[in-house]
Design a protein around this nucleic acid. Structure first.
Lengths: 356, 356
DNA sequence: GTGAAAGCGCTAACAC
DNA sequence: GTGTTAGCGCTTTCAC
């Protein structure tokens, strides 16, 4: 079979220097002459030496690994974030290992943290709701930064996104297109980001002098199906909206499906704006106008913050809020010209009975 | 600050035994009296002892961690698999760490593998296309099992799914509902699973004595948007299909969107079957009839295979193919009664001009 | 059934 | 600049 992985001792021996010198050379530490360093580096590369990060960690130093803790990654939001953090970490010379929390985990906080601590120099926690882990994290004495839409956790540096501003931007965009009846499909109000979007929607309406009709707000739960229902009910109003701002992209998809189901075309008859800009948003028809969460930037911010926490243990915990960006694609267009209430013909109602 | 994590030495000292005895007790190894074991366990739990898996690994033994290598997890398929493997591993007492490969990784095969090897007892590789890593994996002498739709890699144990059978099942389902003109929206043919689905579709048609019209096969690329186009073109045929089997769920969504765009209702006017059963499939409207990939089972199979490879290094590499399951939801229904070609009125064509 | 010694691969601390 | 020593936390091997 393949031989054992080369060790530092072997590199040192071949180079004819001590392990320490080899170590210093490989780690870019001072105290090695230029030639010695070059020689060591060359030999290491020749024999395919790779440091053993377990040993590195065990001996009490950094090992260049950042841990990412996530809830089960079944949603796009988390997936994008993991990629964002991963790329940013790599750019800084760090590797990244993700540890997925399953719901059954409740008991094992301590051991999970132990594991993380043994393997990594610090952790980026993408924990959406339950803060139980945060307590454990706090006790574990590991550098941590939280990425979340609602990190009101004390003492942790955090990175989040300006949901409020994004919502305002979405409504403004719609208003600029001439829409005056703008609906909102919401989500789980226990999430701070969701509440912020709702507030943003309402405030923007008010600021623009547009009517804010409670009927135009439909509850959702961030899922496509629920948004389909919400959208359907909004469109069934006697004075339906000509535009809808959905709390996330998935919900926007649901709204578009509902519109189509009623014989409406997007964006001709209904404009729709989402939130997140998950990859699918640009790959559906019509490509979705949406508020982009700056995943890459969030990753970078998280990594940088983490690194500086590692340098300076007692640094004050920053709270970084990143701006969103309006991405105009093809799901929004000018408000229809027909007067409110005189909607163009829809297919007759018997046409809409459910099948099967 | 929080004190240092407790070590084995501390446990042993408190228990009044040697480290070795404590170690044996904690690892369920023979050679410890019942009472001693109980005592050690109790103390360990009391002081919150957690083994250091880095040290465990360094000292040459197993550490109970399974690595999962994945391409960037931006798609549902991979996400589900990660969850499946994670759960299965946990059920066997293993922790799981996922290492995400970024495209820029090309160079670093060796170091990645080094990293993996230092931290884990074995790895589940969810590598879709490039086998470059597989070579590295082969050379690294780490137990590996591949999960993939196309693992023709030699020597590796693999777990995959019976795409062919699934496709057959999908077509049979449609035929049973009375459909005779059944279309297919395909995907990237470089993926074995995709080719299998196409073959299954064709063979099932032949076996059922249904016409197999080349026009009824539209190319796709597994994305929703491309499937939207493919579906649109299929539905624009002079003799359009009354049912479409899409190569994956995302494509099925695209087809449904296309149908709606043309004023057709699903399933009344068009039945659609997907493949995968990603979580979204049940959360859209209408809930999607689809061929389920048994993600949980795949995870279990992968983990079990990996464990037995670990036991028995030179065991022959099994090639496990798991069956799929037809999940009937609401996107499929009886074939429309009207004769082929006398399609019910669609909205007039000028209605379909693109906006903006 | 239990323990002592040695070592996994590395780096911090202190020589020289 | 470079080398030596010690030790991270654990498990192996070999005693008893």
């Amino acid at each position: 079979m393949s031989k054992q992985a080369p060790t530092l001792a072997q590199v040192a021996k071949i180079a004819g220097v001590s392990q320490m010198t080899a170590s210093r050379a490989l780690n870019d530490k001072p105290g090695v002459s230029h030639e010695t360093r070059e020689a060591v580096l060359k030999i290491a590369s020749d024999i395919g030496y790779v440091v053993n990060r377990s040993a590195q960690k065990l001996s009490g130093s950094r090992n260049g690994i950042i841990g990412i803790m996530t809830p089960v990654l079944d949603n796009h939001y988390v997936g994008e974030l993991v990629v964002g953090v991963g790329r940013a970490a790599r750019a800084q010379g760090y590797e990244t290992l993700v540890y997925t929390l399953f719901d059954e985990d409740r008991h094992s906080h301590r051991s999970v943290l132990g594991l993380i601590k043994q393997f990594t120099d610090g952790v980026v926690a993408i924990l959406p709701r339950e803060s139980a882990y945060f307590n454990a994290l706090a006790a574990a004495n590991v550098p941590v930064v939280a990425i979340d839409q609602r990190c009101s956790l004390d003492g942790f540096p955090s990175v989040s996104v300006d949901s409020y501003g994004g919502a305002v931007r979405a409504v403004e965009h719609l208003a600029q297109l001439g829409h005056t009846r703008i609906g909102f499909v919401g989500g789980d109000e226990s999430i701070e980001g969701v509440r912020d979007r709702r507030r943003g929607y309402l405030d923007a309406l008010a600021r623009l002098g547009l009517p804010s009709d409670p009927n135009l707000i439909a509850p959702g739960d961030l899922s496509q199906m629920r948004a389909f229902e919400a959208g359907s009910s909004l469109l069934a109003l006697s004075e339906p909206p000509t535009a809808i701002f959905a709390v996330n992209d998935l919900s926007a998809f649901g709204v578009i499906a509902a519109a189509r189901e009623q014989g409406l075309r997007v964006p001709r008859d209904l404009s729709v704006v989402g939130f997140d800009d998950i990859p699918m948003a640009s790959q559906v028809h019509p490509p979705l106008t949406t508020i982009r969460q700056p995943f890459a930037q969030m990753g970078r911010a998280a990594v940088n913050t983490l690194l500086s926490q590692m340098e300076n243990d007692d640094a004050i915990a920053p709270r970084i809020v990143l701006p969103t960006e309006l991405i105009v694609r093809e799901s929004t267009g000018p408000a229809p010209r027909y007067a409110v209430g005189t909607r163009r013909t829809k297919r007759s109602d018997h046409d809409r009975t459910t099948s099967r």
